[in-house]
């Protein structure tokens, strides 16, 4: 056992214990850590946004780089996003707060426009292609059987979400079959969720036992 003598490791340990103390009950130590986390996260976000986005993408080409590197025409093109970006500040000035709608409209319209064809291709067309039964599935009995089960599963699960008609007769049978597939899917997700949560806990214990206490190599 080689307990760390690094003061910063000890700080990390104290903060870890502070968050873990919530397991016992809500307490001032936990609340301190929680509020510290929120403030630091936002400060980190601001620093990175400046150095990784605002400075290289806007400030440097517009104000730092000379005309020999960035032409006047190109510099003027940066004025539009600058003005749109500054409109976000208007949110906090009641008389002109409506100006915040301009950058929001730009971002929303652009996002919606690029998303529609992309999602259509990735999540509808390609997924439908994957569902269709193709000649390739006859190559082996197991491939064929799993392809049929998958096809039935997709169709029945989709029908389960079809609420425009009462679930009676054939639709009832299909939607009940769909529930079976959905439950297996949710079960698989739950099983994996257990794995995820335990991994995060193990990660923290590895830090405490390895980096702090030196109990494991």
């Amino acid at each position: 056992m080689h307990v760390s003598t690094d003061i910063l490791t000890w700080v990390a340990v104290v903060l870890t214990v502070g968050i873990f103390s919530f397991l016992w009950k809500d307490n001032p130590f936990y609340k301190f850590c929680e509020h510290l986390f929120v403030g630091i996260s936002l400060g980190y976000f601001i620093s990175l946004t400046w150095y990784n986005a605002v400075y290289p993408d806007l400030f440097r080409p517009l104000f730092v780089q000379p005309l020999s590197e960035v032409s006047l025409g190109n510099k003027l093109l940066f004025i539009i996003p600058l003005l749109l970006g500054l409109c976000y500040f208007c949110r906090f000035i009641p008389r002109v707060s409506w100006l915040v709608r301009f950058p929001m409209a730009f971002v929303l319209g652009w996002g919606a426009g690029v998303t529609i064809p992309a999602v259509l291709q990735t999540s509808i067309i390609r997924q439908m292609q994957g569902t269709f039964l193709t000649p390739g599935i006859f190559a082996r009995w197991d491939v064929f059987l799993w392809a049929i089960i998958s096809f039935v599963g997709v169709v029945c699960s989709v029908l389960y979400f079809f609420f425009s008609r009462e679930h009676k007769g054939a639709l009832k049978v299909a939607s009940e079959t769909g529930i079976v597939f959905l439950m297996v899917g949710f079960g698989a997700s739950f099983g994996y969720t257990v794995m995820a949560r335990m991994s995060l806990l193990i990660g923290r214990f590895q830090f405490l036992l390895r980096d702090w206490l030196g109990l494991i190599q």
């Binding site: 700080v11 990390a12 340990v13 903060l15 870890t16 502070g18 968050i19 873990f20 919530f22 397991l23 850590c33 929680e34 510290l36 986390f37 630091i40 996260s41 980190y44 949560r197 995060l200 806990l201 990660g203 923290r204 830090f207």
Partner: peptide, 12 residues
């Protein structure tokens, strides 16, 4: 600061 706080928050 950020790593232990964020990681512990989810570990619990």
């Amino acid at each position: 600061f950020l790593v232990p706080l964020n990681a512990s928050m989810f570990a619990i």
